[in-house]
């Protein structure tokens, strides 16, 4: 996607791959430990980290000249947040 052909990206790719596999394993194992409501927090935090590194390294979002693409991602997440937050605001405060 960009001209970083001087140094081989293979090392990055394989480290990301290992990290994603480890993340999956941790998610799976952590689900069987009773942490109360923190089970969901742990699982979603790991999922978000995994999604982020896929986007940043596999989808090459981290390169500086793709600022516009970062804007697309941020805008999308913002509107998704609006959808969920304002709807949940209704459900959480019903009497």
């Amino acid at each position: 996607m960009s001209d970083h052909s001087k140094s081989s990206p293979l090392k990055t790719y394989f480290s990301v791959w290992i990290a994603l596999l480890v993340g999956t394993f941790v998610t799976y194992e952590a689900a069987f430990i009773d942490l109360g409501r923190f089970n969901a927090v742990v699982a979603l935090t790991i999922a978000t980290i995994k999604a982020l590194i896929v986007a940043l390294f596999f989808m090459h979002l981290r390169h500086a000249h793709e600022r516009l693409l970062k804007l697309v991602v941020i805008a999308t997440i913002f509107f998704l947040f609006i959808l969920i937050a304002l709807s949940m605001a209704d459900y959480a405060t019903r009497t």
Binding site: A55, F58, M59
Partner: peptide, 27 residues
Amino acid sequence: EIGGLYWHFVDIIWIYLFPLLYLIDRH
């Protein structure tokens, strides 16, 4: 590259679906 973006995105969706659907209150 474009096809790859799509494939990674489908992967990301699954990264969320897995804990949300398979791992609720496991014992």
